[in-house]
């Protein structure tokens, strides 16, 4: 569909959001990501049955951790999309980018870092 979205997002593909490890979510922030989104299939529509439900619990826990360590839980989010929802994907990237621009760069990257919002997303490619 070639819908335009901000060029600040980098996608990391995994077989299923079931493969998105909370450790990788946290790691992305450790390296300096300003935000991370996990994009999975619609709930109940997981090609691998329940992968996206597990991913949801991990994102929830990552949110809690980010809140407690002072980064802010809003920097991580999960979205459920079907393969026909390219438009919504573009919207989500826009929304998330705007939210992160509002929050400012991650304090982890500090002043030295480039002033760009970068998100890494786990996308289901199955």
């Amino acid at each position: 569909m070639r819908l335009q979205y901000p060029p600040t997002v980098r996608i990391i593909e995994v077989p299923c959001t079931g493969k998105v490890d909370i450790i990788h979510l946290l790691q992305a922030f450790e390296y300096g990501a300003d935000g991370v989104i996990v994009v999975g299939c619609m709930e109940g529509d997981c090609h691998y049955q329940k992968g996206n439900l597990y991913a949801k619990t991990r994102v929830k826990r990552a949110k809690e951790i980010l809140d407690k360590v002072g980064l802010g839980g809003e920097r991580v989010a999960m979205f459920n999309l079907s393969s026909g929802m390219g438009g919504r994907f573009a919207e989500i990237i826009k929304e998330m980018t705007n939210k992160i621009l509002e929050l400012g760069p991650s304090p982890v990257r500090g002043a030295a870092a480039k002033a760009k919002a970068t998100g890494a997303a786990g996308e289901v490619t199955a």
């Binding site: 450790i23 922030f29 826990r61 002072g70 980064l71 304090p107």
Partner: peptide
């Protein structure tokens, strides 16, 4: 080990942002 990695990552994030 999973919990170790999660806690360690959380603490590193805490210290870096502080």
């Amino acid at each position: 080990l999973k919990e170790v990695k999660i806690l360690a990552a959380a603490l590193r994030l805490y210290f870096t942002q502080a």
